[in-house]
Write a protein that binds this DNA or RNA. Structure first.
Length: 115
DNA sequence: CGAATGACCAAGC
DNA sequence: GGCTTGGCCATTC
């Protein structure tokens, strides 16, 4: 009960939902950056909003396919969530380098389209 | 309405 | 090469 996460409120709004839809369109084995999503929404400056949107991402959003501009997993250093994200990506075919970063040149999804 | 927040990005030192 | 600052926008209280 109770305690609906703010995500619930935010997701019912507008912009956030758009972010989620973009993330949902990311096929397995590919990743997108926050800035890329923001750019798809129409403004790179929305990058921070994307970050916040991910913070409240619903369970039906493959948030693990969203990485920062450096190809690294951003997600807050919470208990193992970082590990989960990496595991999910590796399971989809995304490989990490020695630094734990993703090669956006190879896995970057450049066909992200606007909504 | 104003202040605070946010998992960003880019530039500077 | 890593840390700090500023900026931008939307959402929340």
């Amino acid at each position: 009960m109770s305690a609906k996460p703010k995500a619930q409120l935010a997701s019912e709004k507008g912009l956030f939902e758009r972010v989620y839809q973009l993330v949902r369109r990311v096929p397995g084995g590919h990743v997108v950056t926050y800035g890329q999503i923001a750019a798809a929404l129409g403004d790179i400056r929305l990058a921070r909003l994307v970050g916040w949107a991910m913070h409240v991402c619903p369970d039906d959003v493959p948030w693990h396919r969203v990485v920062n501009a450096r190809g690294g997993l951003s997600t807050r250093p919470l208990q193992g969530e970082l590990y989960v994200q990496r595991m999910l990506l590796e399971d989809e075919g995304v490989q990490f380098d020695q630094q734990g970063c993703i090669d956006l040149t190879t896995y970057g999804w450049n066909e992200l389209q606007k909504i």
